[in-house]
Design a protein around this nucleic acid. Sequence first.
DNA 1: AAAAAAATTGACTTTCACGTAAAAGTTAAT
DNA 2: ATTAACTTTTACGTGAAAGTCAATTTTTTT
Lengths: 128, 128
Amino acid sequence: MDKYYTITELTREFGVSTRTLRFYEDEGLIHPERRGRTRLFRAADRHLIKEILRGRRIGFTISEIREIIQVYKDPPGEMGQLQLLMRKVGEKRDELRQKRRDIDETLAELDNVEEACLTRLAEIGVGT
Amino acid sequence: MDKYYTITELTREFGVSTRTLRFYEDEGLIHPERRGRTRLFRAADRHLIKEILRGRRIGFTISEIREIIQVYKDPPGEMGQLQLLMRKVGEKRDELRQKRRDIDETLAELDNVEEACLTRLAEIGVGT
DNA sequence: AAAAAAATTGACTTTCACGTAAAAGTTAAT
DNA sequence: ATTAACTTTTACGTGAAAGTCAATTTTTTT
């Protein structure tokens, strides 16, 4: 009988709106079951939602996320498609590595900003 | 006499459109000089554009980028503002760290996808 | 069974980050 | 001087990813 989740349980867990989850269904990213018209989310859906939100956080578009998800469900059977996919994977990898460098640089910059703040605070603190 | 750059030089260097750079000016991120109505970009602008694009790559909004830039030009003089800023810096830091985790996980996933592809390719390759 | 709470669909709206087109002015090269 | 290439402003358009609102079901609670 496998536990299932209601839509609002999941919206609370993940901090998204119901609209968002329905949107993801419309976009073909998840396929919750139905009891009548009401959606029943299973563990698999829940897991997918996690992946979707992770993809979202790092800036993937819906269709990019859809593509990645599809590969698991059904890796392309045709040669050309496979090669295309692999090329894309390579590109994504490069992109993500660049992003990680960007993040590291920005983290360093935030350290500077913070230090500037502390200095400023000290200046002000002394004067009062 | 300090070298300056035309707008198209920079669009070519950074792979963005003129519209984008003008938009950044409208948004108050850069302030190129003018000779008549024509924009003259200096090294400082060029550097800022680099930062803006880096921020963009990791998903910062224009106003977030603007905030960061402002701190350099003019760190807030008022106590409350400073504390607010430092709180924000802390939040950004957390956000970026989360993003880095997301990226690492996704990179691992890409490895899986690639392996699935290779396996599939081998299967197909044998049959032909 | 009646009332209250939750879920559904559908349509319209919003925000962000530019794109695009038009019309006109500017500069550089021939 | 003319052409070509570039640049400017103004203003409307666009796509992605939801948000919002309204009008129904459906489900749950009393």
